Deep mutational scan, measured.
Amino acid sequence: QTVVIGDTTYHLNNPEAAQQIAKELAKKYGLKVVISGNTIKLK
């Protein structure tokens, strides 16, 4: 699972954790979560 935040890319072996982290950050910073395949992007 790949999480992309701005110009930073994180690789996590746990998809659920990756999605949870993405949701928390999106909520905290008012970002939009875009999931395509096994890549999660925060914009």
Rank of each mutant, 00 (worst) to 15 (best):
Gln1Phe: 15
Gln1Ser: 13
Gln1Asp: 08
Thr2Trp: 14
Val3Gln: 02
Val3Phe: 10
Val3Ala: 03
Val4Cys: 15
Val4Ile: 12
Val4Ala: 04
Ile5Asp: 03
Ile5Cys: 15
Ile5Pro: 03
Ile5Ala: 02
Ile5Gln: 03
Ile5Tyr: 07
Gly6Lys: 04
Asp7Thr: 14
Thr8Asn: 08
Thr8Met: 12
Thr8His: 13
Thr8Gln: 09
Thr9Ala: 07
Thr9Tyr: 09
Thr9Ser: 07
Thr9Cys: 15
Tyr10Ala: 02
Tyr10Cys: 15
Tyr10Met: 07
Tyr10Thr: 00
Tyr10Val: 06
His11Ser: 06
Leu12Ala: 08
Leu12Ile: 12
Leu12His: 04
Leu12Ser: 02
Asn13Tyr: 08
Asn13Trp: 12
Asn13Ile: 09
Asn13Glu: 11
Asn13Gly: 09
Asn14Pro: 08
Pro15Leu: 12
Glu16Arg: 11
Glu16Cys: 11
Glu16His: 09
Glu16Asn: 07
Glu16Lys: 10
Ala17Ser: 08
Ala18Cys: 11
Ala18Ile: 12
Ala18Asp: 01
Ala18His: 03
Ala18Ser: 03
Gln19Thr: 09
Gln19Ile: 14
Gln19Lys: 11
Gln19Gly: 05
Gln20Met: 11
Gln20Ser: 08
Ile21Ser: 01
Ile21Gly: 00
Ile21Cys: 15
Ile21Trp: 15
Ala22Asn: 01
Ala22Ser: 03
Ala22Trp: 09
Ala22His: 00
Ala22Cys: 05
Lys23Pro: 00
Lys23Arg: 13
Lys23Glu: 11
Glu24Phe: 15
Glu24Arg: 14
Leu25Met: 05
Leu25Asn: 00
Leu25Gly: 00
Ala26Glu: 06
Ala26Asp: 02
Lys28His: 04
Lys28Cys: 14
Lys28Trp: 11
Lys28Ile: 08
Lys28Tyr: 13
Tyr29Asn: 02
Tyr29Lys: 01
Gly30Cys: 14
Gly30Pro: 02
Gly30Met: 07
Leu31Glu: 01
Leu31Tyr: 09
Lys32Phe: 10
Lys32Ser: 12
Val33Pro: 01
Val33Tyr: 06
Val34Ala: 04
Val34Phe: 12
Val34Pro: 00
Val34Asp: 05
Ile35Val: 09
Ser36Phe: 12
Ser36Gln: 10
Ser36Asp: 12
Ser36Met: 11
Ser36His: 09
Ser36Lys: 09
Gly37Thr: 02
Gly37Asp: 05
Gly37Phe: 08
Gly37Tyr: 05
Asn38Gln: 05
Asn38Val: 05
Asn38Gly: 07
Thr39Trp: 05
Thr39Arg: 06
Thr39Leu: 07
Thr39Phe: 07
Thr39Met: 09
Thr39Ile: 12
Thr39Glu: 07
Ile40Lys: 00
Lys41His: 13
Lys41Cys: 15
Lys41Pro: 00
Leu42Tyr: 04
Leu42Trp: 05
Leu42His: 01
Leu42Ile: 10
Leu42Thr: 01
Leu42Gly: 00
Lys43Pro: 03
Lys43Tyr: 15
Lys43Leu: 15
